[in-house]
Nucleic acid binder design. Structure first.
Lengths: 217, 217
DNA sequence: CGACTCGTTGACTCTCTTCAAGGATAGTGG
DNA sequence: CCACTATCCTTGAAGAGAGTCAACGAGTCG
């Protein structure tokens, strides 16, 4: 559950702005899509972009949640660890996705770059202040969070009730749908994550993922 | 992810209001906790309460999402069905919990009363209009949704990486924590749902749940 | 070239499921 | 009041799907 009728993207041609937001390639895919040129200019004053190498950690579970991010380029995996090292990947993020909304003042999961990654950073305090003046953005965040919740519930169904073959098939469909939403080709399908990442996402082992993929071919 | 610093409950003694909200036993547990007396009076004008028998369906997956609800009394299970009848319970709701935030205009899951149930109903359109005037409530909804998302991610870890014994133990801890939050005794722990419900929540079978419970004793 | 990671495949194991039966409790109707 | 049925819970025995352990090929990097 999350959004009572989320705000819709503003239609129209690319905006002609000064700062980094003007040239943003993923604005229409992101929460920023609901903002007007004026509002974007305001948002622009608090952001900065950061680059990460593949494999580097972006945020860590239970660390202070100082920033929020938009994925600009690359992909990210989110995961949680059990005390004995078992790992569960809770999601993958792609360009346009939002990262870092936290319940308390700490992140609820870790995030790691899968590929070379570029993020757009929003300092949390500044964003909070700005949010009071940008109700459309706040509504959009509610919609985004609702969307993530719905996706999490689909993942719960997958993990609770689907077989290995169904899980792998659902995963491929998910990747394909997400690629289409970013206007990327769904075939050949790009799969940036490793078998281990996929296994930890689907609640399986790498061997089972590998076997199932060969079986599906 | 969900709330940038959710609004906090307003401190102070029970409010003395006219309408149903004045006597509401679960206000402090619910999203309404952030509202002032004036704001509550406004909210009061759009609500009504409904009662359901145990076993009756409150909302159905993919039905038009016309209303949202607070649980006042009783408990609810949320679930999704696969086409072949497999069922996954995605959550249980107790007094104070919020129900019905929808992504589109349809509910994303079904909800069924476990015990005799009383809900407080918010017509969606009226609530949406009111929300524009009650920013605290909107922020609180974002926080609530974020909280649900975090809970869903915990459930994902449980389903993806925990053993049957761990799942059942985690479930008991969850029930106990939730009971304490409602100021109910955690021992003896009240378990209103059937073994089948628990199994469909934990991604197990009733037999395994039953066996695991006897093993834990 | 050697060390490493990643993906694949095979053989065996084990946890949980499936199938089956029986006990406990509650509601119904004669 | 008591069969009669239905639902829920428990327990047992057998089976299957995925996990574990192990080996190997391919690609990459220093």
């Amino acid at each position: 559950m999350a959004s009572l009728r989320p705000a819709q993207p503003r239609p129209g041609p690319p905006l002609d702005l000064a700062g980094p937001c003007g040239a943003c390639a993923i604005r229409e895919l992101s929460v920023c899509s609901v903002l007007s040129a004026n509002e974007l200019t305001r948002l622009c004053t608090i952001i900065s972009t950061i680059d990460f190498d593949a494999g580097s950690t972006v945020i860590g579970e239970s660390e202070p949640a100082g920033d929020l991010f938009n994925v600009v380029r690359g992909s990210v995996k989110l995961y949680k660890l059990l005390t004995d090292g078992r790992r569960q990947v809770t999601g993958f993020l792609f360009p346009g996705d939002f990262l870092g909304i936290a319940l308390n003042d700490t992140y609820a999961y870790s995030a790691e770059a899968i590929e070379p990654l570029q993020l757009c950073r929003f300092p949390r305090k500044k964003l909070e202040m700005l949010l009071a003046e940008l109700p459309r953005l706040e509504r959009k965040l509610l919609g985004t969070t609702a969307h993530e919740l719905a996706a999490a519930q689909d993942q719960i169904v997958l993990l609770g009730r689907k077989t290995a073959k169904e899980r792998v098939a659902s995963f491929l469909v998910l990747l394909s749908d997400r690629a289409l939403k970013r206007r990327q080709p769904a075939s050949p399908l790009e799969v940036p994550m490793t078998r281990t990442d996929i296994a930890d996402y689907l609640g399986l082992t790498t061997e089972t993922v590998s076997r199932t993929l060969t079986w599906l071919r």
